[in-house]
Design a binder for these strands. Structure first.
Lengths: 338, 338
DNA sequence: TATATTTGTTTAATCGATTAACCAAAAGTA
DNA sequence: TACTTTTGGTTAATCGATTAAACAAATATA
């Protein structure tokens, strides 16, 4: 019942030729006659031959698999990035293995091990927020396979990186809020140890200074940026003697949490407080009021990361260096800030 | 630079024993002395040995990989299912390969081929809405590896299935709406060719009859259930001479689309029209008004699907049959319907 | 002491595809 | 004709781990 799969040998037997000839015929080797090729392909089709990937990968030392690690797939940004990566890689004959870290360092390490174990030819990853210890990423490098980071990267790893200009994005947001007449702009950011959040914070601070606005310590908060964080941190800002008139939240999820609290307390957005998120998650346009946010060009990021990986294929020794591709972001203005 | 990976042979050379002994030592074979085992493990650690999965998988005829196909990862339902599957499978020594069909039949076929090519030991899938032709799924079965379907299944395939009781869920929704005083309940459903949507439609119709309410053809609409569909179909319902006082939408995304239109038109929800979605996506609790929906127990579905797969490991011949695990769903009542 | 059993390991085959090296026959060339 | 080149393959090794079968040495048993 559980019929054995067809192998090269089966085809070879039918035609009374060697398996080598069959292999070459299927791979369109120049040294095989057109006649033989035709016959081989014909029999292969008849016997429903499917190459055994494990065998060829073992022999060739190449699996044609690329591992992808994302904090979570359940986010339109990451899912769009992955989709676009897949498209590019599929075209080049690669399949991808998606894993999610759920923002957990431990899970991320397990994923890395699982991917290396599966003998992927490269890894494209966006780091978990928790991750500080880079040893597992160093391990990838020590395997001699390309490692490409996107969105959540780390300079110290000295590998390729694709992402947007977070520093500049903060400027765009602050500039916009100032143009809307805001004078006291708060920032609910991520933790500085994560590069992208640090850049957003630096951008925020510099932009505030640029506009000669108060750079008040109490207006800058670091958090994990979950929805719940957004709720808690806005409460802190609302409790201030001198409330802000605008809040720039470094994640749409947290921004949504903040919006919920503002609505619950009957504070009018954008009239009393203007709100800006980050990431352009679909719900930002769906909630009331819709939330102004930053579009990170997930399609571009996915494609560029995949192409960066493919760029390594031509070289036979992988030597990586810090090589950043920084894309411009786009401010999508919605009701929450105008 | 690109250092060769350590193999069994390297360890064997260091200790001047055979690779067979090394292999057995690492696998804790009873015939290897404790002394040798210790020495082997010691050297393996020193040389940072990592087994080559391709080689062992090829030899054992087992990859310890499970393929997962979902319509999209960018949905809390599917992402939660996958997460829970992964947890169960990881514990059993399996890794998963996630692929998404984007609701496209063509992409789904490609994914199936890619997974079979990677020599996965089994496939757990939720079918794309488009999929009618089952030949690619039959192909999986013909490979003799277990196929488990969840959420979007198909009786004709005669394989295991894990999902909720859609028929009963419709009854719960209609019962609830009736208890809120609704007299004209419309249903924006999926296409009947998809089993789950057909069941929801049947449930809707039977529940309507049960309550002696008008079962009006114009109140039942089939669509693709995207957000955009939700917008278009509600327009149709609003254009009716005799408008419904409640709309049960078979997907949260479409429900959201409908809600947007209702709000745009200034129609009060739930006062003028009550609205119920399906799937309990996170945004249902985030939008205003929050949307009543059905929780599908993604955690349970993920775990049970994974366990069903693991159940096949003990048997050496895979013989599958239609074996359904149907879970009860849960109605989460929110502002849009009360 | 002679034989049987156990212990611990080695040898060699194997999984299936690829490929370097080799070779015979056909065709080309001087 | 004699030698070279081209064509179209074949042979055999290889990727790395596993495992059936063989085997030597140590130990037990009669």
């Amino acid at each position: 019942m559980n019929k054995k799969r067809t192998t090269l040998k089966d085809i070879a037997n039918v035609l009374s030729i060697s398996t080598a000839a069959v292999s070459k015929a299927l791979n369109d080797d120049a040294r095989i006659s057109v006649k033989t090729k035709k016959a081989v392909k014909q029999v292969a089709k008849e016997l429903n031959y499917q190459p055994n990937h494990l065998a060829s990968a073992l022999r060739k030392g190449k699996s044609n698999l690329v591992g992808v690690i994302v904090p979570r797939t359940n986010s339109s940004f990451f899912s769009s990035v992955v989709e676009n990566m897949e498209e590019v890689l599929n075209k080049a004959g690669y399949n991808i293995i998606i894993t999610q870290s759920n923002e957990s360092f431990e899970k991320e390490c397990k994923n890395i091990d699982a991917l290396l174990y599966t003998q992927v030819d490269g890894i494209i990853a966006s780091m978990a927020n928790e991750t500080v210890d880079l040893s597992y990423y160093e391990k990838i490098k020590s395997y001699g396979i390309p490692l490409i980071l996107f969105d959540r990267g780390e300079n110290d790893l000295n590998v390729d990186y694709v992402g947007i200009d977070d520093y500049k994005s903060s400027h765009m947001i602050v500039d916009h809020l100032v143009s809307q007449g805001c004078k006291r702009i708060a920032h609910i950011g991520g933790y500085r140890r994560t590069r992208i959040f640090n850049n957003r914070i630096r951008g925020y601070i510099d932009a505030i200074k640029k506009h000669d606005l108060p750079h008040d310590d109490e207006l800058l908060i670091e958090s994990s940026l979950t929805l719940e964080d957004g709720r808690q941190q806005i409460e802190k800002l609302l409790a201030l003697k001198n409330r802000p008139d605008a809040v720039y939240v470094a994640s749409d999820y947290a921004a949504l949490g903040s919006l919920q609290v503002l609505k619950e307390k009957g504070i009018k957005v954008p009239e009393e407080i203007k709100l800006v998120g980050f990431g352009n998650e679909p719900f930002t346009s769906l909630v009331t009021p819709s939330i102004t946010s930053i579009n990170q060009h997930s399609e571009q990021i996915g494609k560029l990361a995949a192409e960066t990986f493919l760029g390594y294929l031509e070289r036979d020794v992988v030597v990586q260096s810090l090589n950043k591709i920084i894309l411009d972001s786009e401010l999508i203005v919605r009701s929450s800030s105008e």
